[in-house]
Nucleic acid binder design. Structure first.
Length: 524
RNA sequence: GCCCCCGUAGUUCAACGGAUAGAACGAGGGACUUCUAAUCCCUAAAUCGAGGUUCGAUUCCUCGCGGGGGCACCA
């Protein structure tokens, strides 16, 4: 019985004890040191509602579980204040293992049939990506990979703020025409040097230069970061040219949601839960960023996704409330989530400071990847929850890159590969996987492998992608311990059951790494 | 002033309201005649403070302290 099946059983049983269990319980791994595969605190949570002490309810639930045929191969015990612990016996584990092994890398069905849209990175086309962009880039990419593994159909999109109307494109245009120096770097100067901007307006020159920068960024993201983007959504081509903003403004006017004041047009987002009204058309007649983004989101929601996800940088947090307000006001259908990645600051000599182009304290993502390698960089970003504030110490990152846990996980994979290769053409001894499960290290490895599906399910529900690094490390560790304790080549023959276990372990490590976009080398 | 995020071993990070707060790096000690020692085993080491809710709080609430970010007719 998998954890999901166990959850269903507990829910059903609870309903027999209490008519409608009010509240959520969990089934999970017990803390280290407790001998059990799963535990639930359901009895503690529902004791009051059932009118019993937790311990009594736990005993009664445990007795009910034991009576079901599904629990025939599971030892059920009540511990402490009322935890119910489940220990799967070898037969049960073998059955689950075989079912898991048959799956062989196929997607799960936790979010089967769902259409999910995820917008991430969306860096301005005014320069290179720096390490601050790395958070959103890898978080979005890994989340998309996990959602796909959970069975969803995911569209990955990158919004390019390249509207000829925008202030930044006009500023970029001034720089291109030699009339300003915003965004200027040696790299940008070289780019300007190879283009003829003569006769162009500031807006057109800015747009032309932005295209060049953008093409370089797209190449970098796809080729060097290994991030697939399904659609590069140009604001200029899709919003400005199509007049999407104007259409939305028309709708908003009809619905009486706008206010004209001080020569500008405002949207009264306070009706949807925001604090105050926001400018959508400036007094000079140009559209604000906000109305473009509203138009963009209206477009997204019109495409019929079950779920729309935005991954934004910390500097956009003030924008969350107003966009949610717009969703409420316009009645967009679908689940909408906005994730904010916290800032990356630099740490030197023990003190942290903000990255600044002017002060030259900016680290480009490309330089980091060139220096440390993409696998190390991916793991580095993947292991931190996006809500943590990263203090990035380049010296420390360099020093520790050789000791990055990513190598540990990759090493386990390479070792498994090597073992499997060595068994080609050798005599199998016919032992079954069950023999390996009888070894503590084998049992632990099987249990860890089976958790893979739970990790995918959990992340597809709570979006906490950093769980993948923890899991991958634990899986590699379980494998290393199995390698220590159980010989695959045993006295001239191959322990066929152990070999099968190694094969599935290798496959699972490789899948877990793939969800993070990390390679699984055959040798190291 | 208002809003958001954070505060856990020396360091970088975990911990869905649950059992003895887990890892890694660093520190100290041990294991190579190997199916890959980039490994394995052992030791020391932590919840910012004060209240509250709860059978139970690192987790939720209030206040305080400390740090980061945002409060534009920039994006």
């Amino acid at each position: 019985m998998t954890r999901n099946e166990l959850e269903d059983l507990i829910r059903k049983t609870l309903e027999e004890f209490i008519l409608t269990p009010n509240g959520s319980f969990r089934v999970g791994a017990p803390p280290a040191g407790v001998r059990a595969d799963y535990m639930t605190s359901a009895a503690l949570i529902f004791a009051k509602q059932a009118g019993k002490t937790p311990r009594v309810l736990a005993e009664e639930l445990a007795a009910a579980f034991r009576r079901t045929s599904a629990c025939a191969d599971i030892e059920i015990g009540v511990e402490g204040p009322g935890y119910i612990n489940f220990i799967l016996n070898e037969t049960a584990l073998l059955r689950l293992f075989e079912r898991f092994a048959r799956r062989r890398g196929k997607n799960f069905d936790f979010r089967l049939g769902q259409k999910i849209h995820i917008e991430f990175i969306s860096a301005n086309p005014t320069g290179d990506l720096h390490i601050g962009h790395g958070r959103g880039a890898f978080y979005g990419d890994i989340l998309a990979r996990v959602l796909e593994a959970a069975g969803a159909s995911v569209t990955r999109e990158y919004y390019i703020n390249d509207s000829r109307e925008s202030v930044q494109i006009r500023e970029l245009g001034k720089t291109a025409l030699g009339k300003g120096k915003q965004y200027k770097t040696t790299k940008l100067e070289a780019l300007i040097g190879e283009t003829d901007f003569s006769g162009m307006s500031e807006a057109d020159a800015g747009f032309a230069l932005a295209r060049k920068i953008e093409k370089a960024n797209e190449y970098f993201i796809e080729k060097k970061l290994g991030i697939r983007i399904d659609r590069w959504y140009s604001e200029d081509g899709n919003i400005r040219v199509q007049q999407l903003a104007e259409k939305i403004i028309g709708e908003l006017r009809v619905q009486g949601m706008v206010i004209e004041e001080e020569g500008a047009l405002w949207l009264d987002t306070s009706r949807g839960g925001d604090d105050e009204k926001r400018v959508i058309v400036r007094s000079d007649g140009s559209n604000s960023y906000f109305i473009s983004d509203i138009a963009y989101h209206a477009d997204k929601f019109s495409r019929g996704f079950d779920s729309v996800i935005d991954v934004w940088g910390a500097d956009h947090h003030g924008h969350v409330k107003r966009m949610m307000a717009v969703k409420n006001m316009l009645g967009w259908e679908g689940d909408f989530r906005i994730f904010i990645t916290q800032l990356v600051s630099l740490k030197e000599n023990g003190t942290s400071k903000k990255m600044s182009k002017r002060a030259g304290t900016i680290i480009l993502l490309e330089d980091l990847v060139d220096e440390l390698g993409i696998d190390v960089v991916r793991w580095f970003f993947a292991e931190k929850a996006i809500s943590t504030h990263m203090d990035f110490d380049l010296a420390l990152a360099r020093e520790q890159s050789a000791k990055n846990p990513v190598y540990y996980a990759q090493y386990a994979h390479a070792r498994a590969h090597s073992i499997i290769k060595k068994t080609e053409g050798e005599n199998m001894d016919g032992r079954g996987v069950i023999e390996s499960i009888k070894e503590p290290a084998g049992r632990a490895l099987v249990v860890k492998i089976l958790r893979f599906s739970e990790v995918v399910k959990d992340i597809s529900e709570d979006y906490q992608v950093h769980k993948l690094t923890t899991y991958s490390y634990e899986l590699a560790s379980a494998f290393s311990q199995f390698y220590r304790d159980v010989r695959i080549h045993d006295r001239g023959k191959v322990n066929s059951g152990a070999l099968e276990l190694v094969k599935v372990a290798k496959q699972t490590i490789s899948e877990a790494l793939a969800l993070m976009g990390v390679s699984a080398p055959a040798e190291m």
